[in-house]
């Protein structure tokens, strides 16, 4: 039995909320509910949008029986079984931690009282969990479960940082899909695209999976970038336990 609330979001969506905190335990409930509802194929149920602690359930009021939909959601939320979730996927993200591709690396090292080499080792040393996607297409909100760094945002945000930037603060690390303003420190740059409109499914990542940052040198970075531009590059993926 899981603690949740179910509420209306306008006349075409429902929201299921679990505990009001950001944690993988709570997020796994969101993931399990989504998995269960998707397999049920409820008439009129639309897209399911998972976030940190909530699942947004779109429905078509002309096709869905709202009472039945609510019942189905309640049944699924009540019999939540985290053990039946498919194994989580890890996607490797190549990262160049160097020079103009890692504008704040030296400063980060100073802030943390260590060397850039050590910062790279920490950042690429364990997996980050993808809680959700949003803000921009393909943009992952990722974090790990110990605080590897103590620094937070920059004092003044940059007006524009390039797509591909890897930005960090505390336990968080994001991949910026397209040029945008940003107040976080840039630790490195990836040549891969987390959103590539040329592809049938443009999005590289999915909520509930993991990513691992893999250091590459400048030559590897440029070679991967070339392959990405040709649409030929495939990120390495593998399964892990939850």
């Amino acid at each position: 039995m899981s603690d949740y609330t179910l509420c209306y979001v306008g006349d075409q969506a429902l929201l299921v909320e679990f505990e009001n905190e950001i944690s993988i335990e709570v997020n796994q409930k969101v993931r399990a509910l989504k998995y269960d509802l998707e397999r049920k194929k409820i008439p009129g149920m639309g897209e399911l949008v998972p976030t940190y602690r909530a699942l947004l359930i779109h429905y078509d009021p002309l096709r869905a029986d709202l009472e039945r939909l609510k019942e189905e959601v309640k049944t699924s939320a009540a019999r939540m079984d985290l053990t039946h979730l498919p194994r989580a996927v890890v996607t490797e993200i190549p990262v160049l931690y160097e020079g103009e591709y890692a504008l704040d690396l030296e400063e980060i090292a100073k802030l943390e009282n260590t060397t850039p080499e050590e910062i790279i080792k920490i950042h690429s040393g364990s997996d980050y969990y993808v809680y959700m996607l949003g803000f921009a297409p393909g943009h992952p909100y990722t974090a790990r479960f110990e605080n590897p760094f103590s620094f937070k945002r920059r004092e003044s945000p940059r007006v524009r940082i390039p797509g591909g930037s890897i930005v960090v603060q505390l336990a968080l690390s994001d991949i910026i899909p397209f040029d945008q303003p940003c107040g976080w420190n840039i630790i490195g740059t990836t040549p891969i695209l987390v959103c590539d409109y040329r592809k049938e499914n443009p999005f590289l990542l999915k909520a509930g999976q993991w990513i691992r940052h893999v250091p590459v040198d400048r030559a590897e970075f440029l070679e991967i970038k070339r392959q990405v531009e040709l649409g030929e590059y495939q990120c390495r993926t593998y399964e892990r336990g939850q």
């Binding site: 306008g10 976030t51 602690r53 909530a54 947004l56």
Partner: peptide, 10 residues
Amino acid sequence: IISDGMVTGA
């Protein structure tokens, strides 16, 4: 709030 999903008209 902790970010959650949005609908048109929110």
